[in-house]
Simulated assay, not measured.
Amino acid sequence: MIKETFRIEIEPLSPTFVWSGETLYKGADFDLVNGKILIIDPFKALGKVKNLREIFKEQFARTIKGFKLIFPSTSVPNQILMINEYLVPASSLKGLIRTAILNKMAKNSPAIYNQIQSNLNTLTTLPPNQIFRQVKNVAEPVEKLLKDAVPFGRGKYTYDALNRLIISDPEIIQASLSLRKITILELFGTFKNENYAITFDKGKLVYDVKILQPSNYGVNSMLKKLDDKISKKEIFDSLSDYSKLVINSEIDKFRATNKNLRKYLEFLEKLRIESECVPLKIGMFTGHVAKTISLPSNIKNERDNIMAKITGHLWDNSTIKLTDDIGVGWVKICIR
């Protein structure tokens, strides 16, 4: 049974990047030709060229939804990260919605934070060869907020309320892509790194959304309470709440650095939640605050310290990712 149907629209407010998992290499996948970076599709050139160099022609350019991957440039990087063919796939949007809903639910169930702290402490008692396998269990109390074990025959299965949320892959409208240099800056030190990626800069993505609901819960009426957390209103309210968290977290970074980030700060100060639309970060290079629930400061600090010991590097929001001095991955999410 269909409980609700609606649309979600996404428009980039800053260059946005969801990685396809593919890395492109200079001289094999792309090269600089007549002042342009040309990313080629080798299958277009099959039987039409005699050697590799002849493949770098605009007629053999790779495309995404009809957009040719040809970008003006004065230099050529060694590697480029390839964007997802759907730009922001439905799975990324659904993952963001899940995090936002769980973040709101955790705040209404503060005992969850004590369970997280207990799981963190357990990590410190484990031998090194078991720690990384158990890290995923730290967040298990949060994940369970939308799940329940339901009797089925002689066993049980896990009921996940988010499975009722069905999001189509997006319709892509007038998309504009760019080749961007993304700079990673350490807020407290001198570390600096650069990546090149194809980013989604302009256009609109439109997703059809359905929320399903069983016609009869039978003896499992407690599952209706879980399903009631998955509604158009709950999604918007959760995203709005999460938006404030991410914006404030990003602004807080400016108090901890002497880097010149004025352009980005001015951008952040203009972000607003509108009647149907919420500004949020999505995709790669957005930082872990945009991907995880918030924690009370004492537990957050404990997590950072424990994970720093486990991984051997800082485990905090100590870097910022910029392109043209603006943070990567800001989008406007509208629920229509």
Results as ranks from 00 to 15, higher is better:
205 L>S: 01
46 L>F: 14
97 I>P: 03
59 Q>D: 08
174 Q>C: 06
282 I>K: 05
324 D>G: 14
276 E>K: 14
75 S>W: 14
271 L>T: 01
281 K>E: 00
23 T>K: 15
230 I>F: 02
63 T>I: 14
81 L>H: 15
237 D>P: 02
302 E>Q: 13
197 A>C: 07
239 L>M: 10
217 Y>M: 02
78 N>L: 14
150 V>D: 05
29 D>T: 07
326 I>F: 03
97 I>R: 00
103 N>L: 02
190 T>I: 11
276 E>D: 08
7 R>S: 09
176 S>E: 15
278 V>F: 03
199 T>A: 11
327 G>S: 15
4 E>F: 01
115 Q>K: 14
114 N>A: 07
150 V>W: 04
92 S>I: 09
312 G>I: 01
214 P>Y: 01
170 P>Y: 00
107 K>V: 12
78 N>I: 08
34 N>A: 15
95 G>M: 06
211 I>T: 11
150 V>T: 14
274 E>Q: 09
322 L>N: 08
292 T>L: 12
236 F>G: 00
269 E>W: 00
161 A>T: 08
182 I>E: 03
177 L>D: 00
16 T>D: 12
147 K>C: 09
5 T>R: 15
274 E>K: 01
148 D>Q: 11
257 T>N: 11
227 D>Q: 02
306 I>T: 13
235 I>C: 03
3 K>E: 11
330 W>E: 04
170 P>L: 04
6 F>D: 04
62 R>D: 07
247 I>V: 15
222 M>N: 10
319 T>A: 13
186 E>I: 01
313 H>V: 10
45 A>I: 05
279 P>M: 00
167 I>A: 12
